[in-house]
C-alpha cells in the first residue's frame, strides 16, 4: 500500500500513552478545578482520540481525503451543538417580555 506499516513497537508506545492518558483523565477528575474540570477532561479525550485516529486508524499515512471527511464529521457536530446551545444560552436575559 502507499504507506509504510508501523512496527509493533510504535503500536505499543501508542497503547501505553493511551493508558497513561486514561489514568490522567480519572486523576484530573478528582482535582477540584471548578468549571475547568470539563475542559481538562475533554482536552485529554481529544488527545486520546487524535492518537487513536493517527496510528490505529492509519490517518497518519493515508490520503488527505480521509482527513477531510473525518474533520467534516467533527465540524458538523460542532455546528449542531454550537448553534443549538446558542439558543439555550441566550434565552435567559430577563427581557420584561420573556
Amino acid at each position: 500500500m502507499s504507506h509504510t506499516i508501523p512496527s509493533i513497537r510504535t503500536y505499543g508506545f501508542v497503547y501505553l500513552a493511551l493508558m497513561l492518558l486514561l489514568a490522567l483523565t480519572v486523576g484530573a477528575a478528582y482535582l477540584n478545578l471548578g468549571s475547568a474540570n470539563i475542559l481538562v477532561a475533554l482536552a485529554i479525550a481529544v488527545v486520546k482520540v487524535v492518537l487513536i485516529a493517527l496510528y490505529f486508524m492509519h490517518l497518519k499515512g493515508s490520503n488527505r481525503l480521509a482527513w477531510v471527511f473525518s474533520a467534516m464529521g467533527v465540524a458538523w457536530l460542532a455546528l449542531l451543538i454550537g448553534l443549538t446551545t446558542l439558543d439555550f444560552v441566550s434565552r435567559w436575559p430577563a427581557l420584561p417580555g420573556k
Binding site: W76, L79, L83, L86, D87, F88, S90, R91, L95, K98
Partner: peptide, 22 residues
C-alpha cells in the same frame, strides 16, 4: 444550508438573539 435551521422557530419560543443569528 446547515446553519440556518432556526428560521423555522422564530415564534416557537427560541431566544430572540438566536433568531437574529439564524
Amino acid at each position: 444550508g446547515f446553519i440556518v435551521w432556526g428560521h423555522h422557530m422564530f415564534v416557537s419560543g427560541q431566544s430572540m438573539y438566536a433568531g437574529f443569528v439564524f
